[in-house]
């Protein structure tokens, strides 16, 4: 873990890191990665990954509309919206 890697993953995460905190964050992340490297001690050859304790395929339900339309309520709690859309700064000139 170095400064360049942290710059890349912070961009992927859409987070900016304050200059004065950068050194500490690089150090923390480096320590955490070193800590989780213990996992290499385990022999996992031929072990299937466990993604979810239930290990059941996600159930599907009948394709019926059960929720009511909350468009008005949802647009009302948005930081910026008009009658039909969420508003953001102009993307296409």
């Amino acid at each position: 873990m170095d400064k360049k890697t942290v710059t890349t993953i912070s961009y992927l995460s859409r987070l900016s890191i304050d200059n004065e905190k950068e050194k500490k964050i690089v150090q923390d992340l480096d320590n955490i990665i070193e800590f989780v490297d213990q996992l290499n001690d385990a022999d996992t050859s031929n072990v299937e990954p466990l993604t979810n304790p239930l290990e059941k395929t996600a159930k599907t339900r009948t394709d019926q509309v059960t929720a009511k339309n909350l468009k008005k309520e949802l647009l009302e709690i948005a930081p910026s919206s008009n009658d039909d859309y969420f508003l953001v700064p102009r993307v296409v000139e």
């Binding site: 873990m1 890697t5 942290v6 890349t8 993953i9 912070s10 992927l12 995460s13 987070l15 890191i17 905190k21 964050i25 923390d28 992340l29 955490i32 990665i33 989780v36």
Partner: peptide
């Protein structure tokens, strides 16, 4: 906050 950011960054790293 800082702890949430730290975990998002670790997550982005291990999934990259």
């Amino acid at each position: 906050g800082d702890e949430v950011k730290r975990r998002i960054l670790i997550g982005s790293y291990v999934l990259s």
